[in-house]
């Protein structure tokens, strides 16, 4: 029932459903870790987990932007792998070449993003097909540059991306900065608010005069830039990254977006919840490792989490409850 008030209640700051869900899940997991597998919370384990959680968080944020526009980005593996290969192969140990290499990686990322954006936003191609094609081209670039063999990263990158400051992995700081930037851009700027509105209902957004295609294109460009950052970080964290390192991030990236509460149909994004979901999935790995359950269980948990995450938003739970608690409303029969 609507409340009859003159003067609407002003908004209050509240945590989203997704953030609460995934936050509670993380707390439960941490408690379970502490009780059942204390070794998964040892300093070494946590320091080992956090860099990968950071990378997943950054990739997840990129995927979130695309999902907000009702799309999906399958070019994550190619994008992450390409960034890794460029920043490790081109300097080939020479610290002086690191910065140009990183700039080059961003250039490639922007180009890939524009390609995706053009194909989806402008030509109206299906996001799956467009990003699938782009992914293949990105991997072609990966193989063209690396020849398929892994390279050792430069010392400089290793110390910057893989090092510790104040006892915390540097990648965490990078991920934190990226998260804050994404949150401010999406939630606090004119462009960001329009971006969310377009994702929620492009038809209505068009009717109010918003530039729908520009924002849809921008989503893919921003996403690629974030994948690039993730790739650079990963190149520093892993001593000898392979040319196909990005492959392992596609599915988890989609999973953290959905777990964070962002609908695959587009609309509002939940960056903070996405980041928390990334930590959750990464800690789940540590936990499984410590408890000794096989890799398979982790995957099954991901699938279950995804199913629950989607079902929370798609199924009309009040109706389901109604079906179980009360008998169905009887149809008034046609009187004779």
């Amino acid at each position: 029932m609507e409340r009859q008030v003159t003067g609407l209640k002003r908004p209050r700051r509240r945590a989203s459903k997704g953030l609460i869900t995934v936050g509670v899940a993380l707390v439960i997991l941490l408690v379970a870790s502490a009780v059942l597998a204390p070794s998964s919370l040892s300093q070494g384990a946590v320091l080992g987990m956090l860099p990968f959680a950071s990378v997943l968080a950054v990739v997840g944020l990129g995927q979130m932007l695309v999902v907000q526009q009702g799309g999906i980005d399958l070019s994550v593996p190619g994008a992450v792998s390409l960034a890794i290969v460029i920043v490790s192969r081109i300097p080939n140990g020479d610290n002086a070449l690191l910065v140009p290499a990183i700039l080059l990686a961003f250039g490639f990322a922007a180009a890939a993003g524009l390609l995706n954006g053009f194909l989806v936003g402008r030509l109206g191609l299906n996001a799956i097909i467009a990003t699938l094609g782009t992914n293949a081209l990105l991997f072609a670039a990966v193989l063209g540059i690396s020849g398929g063999s892994p390279t050792t990263t430069t010392r400089l990158l290793q110390s910057v991306a893989g090092g510790l400051s104040f006892g915390i992995p540097n990648s965490v700081f990078f991920a934190a900065v990226v998260s804050v930037v994404v949150i401010v851009l999406v939630k606090k700027t004119v462009a960001g608010r329009r971006f969310e509105a377009i994702g929620a209902n492009p038809t209505a957004a068009r009717a109010t005069g918003l530039r729908v295609r520009v924002h849809q294109t921008a989503a893919y460009v921003w996403a690629q830039l974030l994948y690039c950052i993730a790739g650079v970080l990963l190149a520093g964290i892993t001593a000898q990254p392979t040319a196909f390192q990005g492959n392992t991030y596609l599915i988890p990236a989609v999973a953290v977006v959905v777990l964070g509460g962002t609908s695959l149909l587009g609309g509002r994004g939940f960056p903070l919840a996405t980041v928390v979901a990334a930590v959750f999935l990464s800690q789940l790995d540590q936990f499984n490792l410590a408890v000794g359950v096989p890799y398979a269980v982790r995957t099954l948990v991901q699938a279950a989490a995804l199913a629950v995450g989607v079902a929370l938003y798609t199924i009309d739970w009040s109706r389901v409850r109604g079906r179980f608690t009360s008998s169905r409303p009887t149809k008034v029969a046609t009187t004779v």
């Binding site: 096989p294 398979a296 269980v297 995957t299 099954l300 991901q302 699938a303 995804l306």
Partner: peptide, 13 residues
């Protein structure tokens, strides 16, 4: 996608 992940998990199981 849910089935994709689940089936992969089952394979490894």
């Amino acid at each position: 996608l849910t089935l994709y992940i689940a089936l992969q998990g089952l394979s490894f199981l």
